[in-house]
Design a protein around this nucleic acid. Structure first.
Length: 267
DNA sequence: ATGACGGAAGTTTTCCGA
């Protein structure tokens, strides 16, 4: 069973690439970020024809998230309960797991705030958003032992996630304050599925459009798939797929794909 | 020191992303 996350930087522009990617990578759940369109412009019928049901939480110009899935989502929640926000950044749903036990997995797809610059109002918003998310995820874990929190986190874990950790030290996505919040999510009992496996050196999920960032592999790993303790033994692989970044008009982010082994029984 | 590139809004230039 496969789960993926991808910041597509405008669904209007990238819809053909999403459909093409899904045709070659028929994942079970795909979380999308930065749709940059309103719900009325969301192409649910097109995804349905491609075999995916979809739930959307759109917004004009900025943000906007969606979950595409083979099986329809239930208990869909938009944004973070208990945290007031006028931006569309989070969508969550529950999905059936294979097997006779009728277990489910809770999937939270998020577009974390950018933060712009340490000390700015947007950075403070990012910090309070991260606290709001953590409080909610903590309560979700009590209800849903099988939980996946994935999306564009806009935070690197450590220097291994940064192409030039010296120059970019303490800049946005690399500050200690942001990484504290990321580690606090891990402390809830989540695991960075990517680092459960051996990975290529200098693995990144985002590259700046400018200055030939992708060709020079000047990137950051800021798109993550965190999985709960119960799912950890089932993780088979987690990979960044750089293929779509080689398209003519690519998103600046690459999709990240997690594979769980659900042929094995789960406790 | 700044901008680069790309998308959206919308109209010629600005905001924002990361």
């Amino acid at each position: 069973m496969k789960f993926a996350t991808w910041n597509i930087n405008s669904l209007t522009v990238r819809l053909p690439q999403v459909l093409d990617w899904l045709a070659h990578n028929p994942v079970d759940v795909l979380a999308l970020q930065e749709l940059k369109l309103t719900d009325d412009k969301f192409p649910a019928e097109v995804f349905m024809q491609a075999g995916y049901s979809a739930v959307c939480f759109g917004q004009k110009t900025y943000n906007g998230v969606a979950l595409l899935s083979r099986a329809p989502a239930s208990d869909v929640v938009r944004n973070i309960p208990g945290f007031s926000d006028d931006m569309s950044r989070v969508i969550s749903g529950t999905f059936p797991l294979p097997g006779p036990s009728h277990q489910t997995v809770r999937v939270i797809g998020g577009y974390f705030p950018n933060g712009q610059e340490p000390g700015s109002d947007k950075f403070e918003y990012k910090m309070s958003w991260l606290k709001g998310l953590r409080d909610w995820v903590q309560s979700e874990l009590l209800i849903h032992p099988n939980l996946i929190l994935m999306g564009d986190y806009n935070i690197t874990f450590d220097d291994a996630d940064v192409w030039d950790p010296v120059t970019l030290r303490d800049t946005i996505h690399c500050t200690e304050e942001e990484r504290y919040h990321l580690r606090a999510l891990i402390a809830l009992g989540l695991h960075d599925s990517f680092r459960l496996f051996e990975q290529p050196e200098k693995s990144y999920s985002w590259w700046d459009y400018r200055d030939l960032g992708f060709r020079r592999n000047r990137g950051l790993r800021i798109d993550h798939i965190l999985i709960s303790q119960a799912l950890k033994p089932l993780a088979q692989s987690c990979k960044i797929d750089k293929t779509p970044r080689k398209n003519e008009r690519p998103s600046d982010h690459a999709p990240v794909v997690l594979t769980l082994d659900y042929s094995r029984p789960n406790s």
